[in-house]
Structure formats: C-alpha cells, structure tokens
C-alpha cells in the first residue's frame, strides 16, 4: 500500500501566552489529539466553526508550526522543517505588492534558480491557465480580489507541489467569483489529481469540492467529530451540484452533527 500523502498522528498544539505563563493558567490548547489522513490524490475538506484551530492544523501540515505533541508524516516520511512537497494558499493576500502578477508567479522558480527566460515563459503559461493572460504586467493593487487569488493559485501551482494546502482561499470573494474560482480549482485539480487539504467554514463549498469532509469541534481543544465520504459523481459543476438530491441529503446529514458545535463556537466568540 502506498503511504498516505498526509498523515497527522495525535497532533496536539498548545499556545503559551505570556499572560498565561505569568498567572499560571494552563496553556491554550488549539488542537487536541487530532489524527487525519489524506490519500494520494484525495481532496479533503476540513470544516469547523470560526476560531476552532483549522488554520493551526494546516500550519502544522505545512511545517510552519511544530506540533506540541504528535507527528506529521508526508508520504510516509516524518516531516522536519518546512514541507517542501506542499503548496500553501493563504486566506489573506500573500502576493508581494512590489512585484507584478507575472513576477509574483515566477517567484518560486526564481528561488529554485530556474533561468529567467524559462521561468517567465512558464509563468505566462500559468497566467493563461488561470485566465489572467493579459494581466501579467499589473501590480497586485491593480487587480481585483478574485484576480489576486488567481495569481496566488498560479504562484503555487507553477511549482507543481504534490500536496495543496488551502486556507479558506476564497472566503473574501463575492459569491459569483467564488463559484467561478471553485470550478476552476476543480478543473485544475482534476488534470493531475494532487492531494488537497482544503480548510473552509462553508459547508456547501466543502461538499461541492471534496471527496471527503471532516468536521471539527469548536475550540479550544479542537478535534474531529465526524467524517463523511462525498459520493457525488465527478466532474462536478459547483453551481449545479448544489441542487442534486444527494448533495442536499449530505448537507443535512453533516449539518445535524455540526449545528451544536457551531453554536458552541459562536457562544465562545461572544464571550471574548
């Protein structure tokens, strides 16, 4: 059997705030004893109420954050340092504002010391592929939110990572742009089936995109509370699949489990 692309084993993340240390309060446990596997080529969405430590899980998988306990395995190897097999798409804007769209896309190739003409040609192809063919010379501030996300997508995919880590990448977009981007993501993904760990708080988005949906409990001490295989046929059209009876059924099923946690999360966010 091939090792899973990502395997988190009993990962726990604690954060020590300076105040907590001083007053002897126990550390804040963001993620508690979480195990999670993503098979090679699988699209997995992790969904949970706001502030439940979803991003923490992603940062651990990316190697940006070392778990307090537990281990991360990438294709069977224990992860040490940054995860070189993964591309990461952030929720917030992550482009370099002083570089044009094209120069942002070539960034990763530049770090790999690919000769400039080659990198530029390759980046032009990728800009075309994400539908930004004529926009290479624009700076990020001259692009719309959706266009910036496309640049980020090209910036990540040009390096051909085996694993995609996506942290609510489309949450800042308006509904129409979002559906467009989701469809484009699926199309790009189906071309070579990378393993995807997609974080979102939008259940519809999670079901429409994924092979499997994992729901997390409200923080602190987030852990998985349920897992559903999404047996909807592919290729899918995001706008249409939402109307399929099986979609509605899955939605109801998952929502039943999540409702309580969402409420808990809401109460906690109000208390702060």
């Amino acid at each position: 059997m091939i090792a899973p692309a990502v395997a988190l084993r009993d990962v726990t993340c604690r954060f020590h705030t300076t105040r907590a240390l001083k007053e002897g309060i126990p550390a804040y446990v963001a993620v508690d004893q979480t195990s999670l596997k993503i098979a090679n080529g699988e699209f997995v969405s992790v969904i949970g109420p706001t502030g439940c430590g979803k991003s923490t899980l992603l940062n651990v998988t990316a190697g940006l954050l070392k778990p307090s306990e537990g281990s991360v395995e990438i294709f069977g190897d224990i992860l040490r340092g940054l995860n070189a097999k993964a591309g990461y798409m952030f929720q917030a804007d992550s482009l370099l504002p002083w570089r044009t769209a094209l120069e942002n896309v070539t960034l990763g190739l530049e770090y790999r010391r690919v000769p400039a003409p080659e990198a530029t040609a390759h980046a032009m192809e990728w800009l075309d592929r994400v539908g930004l063919g004529g926009f290479g010379d624009r700076y990020p501030h001259q692009l719309s939110g959706g266009m910036r996300k496309r640049v980020s997508l090209a910036q990540m995919l040009i390096l051909d990572p085996k694993i995609l880590l996506m942290d609510e990448p489309f949450s800042a977009l308006d509904v129409q742009t979002r559906v467009l981007m989701e469809n484009e993501l699926l199309e790009l993904w189906s071309a070579d089936r990378k393993s995807v760990l997609f974080i979102t708080h939008d259940l519809e988005e999670a079901i429409a995109l994924s092979d499997r949906v994992i729901a997390l409990s409200a923080g602190p001490g987030t852990h998985p509370i349920g897992e559903w295989a999404i047996d909807l046929p592919r290729p899918r059209d995001i706008a249409e699949i939402r109307l399929a009876p099986r979609f509605v059924e899955l939605h109801r099923l998952i929502w039943e489990t999540m409702k309580e946690e969402v409420l808990k999360g809401y109460v906690q966010s109000q208390r702060k």
């Binding site: 990316a62 070189a84 952030f90 992550s94």
Partner: peptide
C-alpha cells in the same frame, strides 16, 4: 510564510 513555502 508564503515566500518561505515557495522555497525562499
């Protein structure tokens, strides 16, 4: 974080 993930 983004530039580090891109391999800088």
């Amino acid at each position: 974080a983004n530039t580090r993930m891109l391999g800088a």
